[in-house]
């Protein structure tokens, strides 16, 4: 199956997004990053580091587990409940510009859940969406503000993002399922 992004491409892409973020958000002290578990988390951390290098500011970074907000919970006749892990947002999101970070944007349902979850933590000034890959096929009216790569896919394919922090290497691969 084709690897559509390798480690170098991923690094370049995240650096570019970091620049875009800095350009579009004057007054960076209002910014905060929140990565969606699982792979949104390392991406958010990498972006925080990249933005720090550009701007010199340390941007608060949090972790969001959206399991308890999923719209497909309790709908399955079989199988155990999805694992819930801890949400860690160690700062107030009130009046912040939140950059919500995930690896792949697909149906939009995860983002919907994440928006609901975030709102329970306070009232941010704005929420912007950052994704490494947008593979299309949206089922909800959701659009990313920063996209690493638009990747046209068919419904029979799946997009696998691997990150060294979790998977031991960086790459994005399309798989036929």
């Amino acid at each position: 199956m084709p690897v559509v992004m390798d480690a170098v491409r991923i690094a370049q892409t995240l650096t570019r997004i970091a620049h875009e973020i800095v350009e579009r958000n004057r007054g960076i002290e209002e910014l905060a990053l929140v990565g969606i578990r699982t792979r949104g988390v390392p991406i958010a951390k990498r972006l925080a580091a990249a933005i720090g290098e550009i701007d010199g500011h340390e941007i608060p970074t949090g972790i969001l587990d959206i399991t308890l907000y999923r719209d497909d919970l309790m709908r399955h006749a079989v199988g155990p409940q999805p694992l819930v892990r801890r949400t860690e947002i160690p700062f107030s999101i009130d009046d912040k510009r939140i950059l919500l970070v995930d690896d792949v944007l697909y149906t939009g349902r995860t983002i919907r859940a994440a928006l609901d979850a975030l709102i329970d933590f306070g009232r941010p000034k704005a929420i912007q969406l950052v994704v490494l890959v947008d593979r299309g096929h949206r089922e909800l009216p959701i659009k990313a503000d920063y996209v690493g790569k638009n990747l046209p896919t068919s419904l029979s394919q799946s997009v696998q993002v691997r990150l060294s922090e979790i998977d031991g290497r960086d790459e994005v691969e399309i798989q036929e399922s």
Partner: peptide
């Protein structure tokens, strides 16, 4: 994971 919910301003998930 559940304990953290009790520390939020809105202590409730759907």
């Amino acid at each position: 994971a559940m304990r953290e919910i009790g520390l939020r301003p809105i202590k409730k998930v759907p």
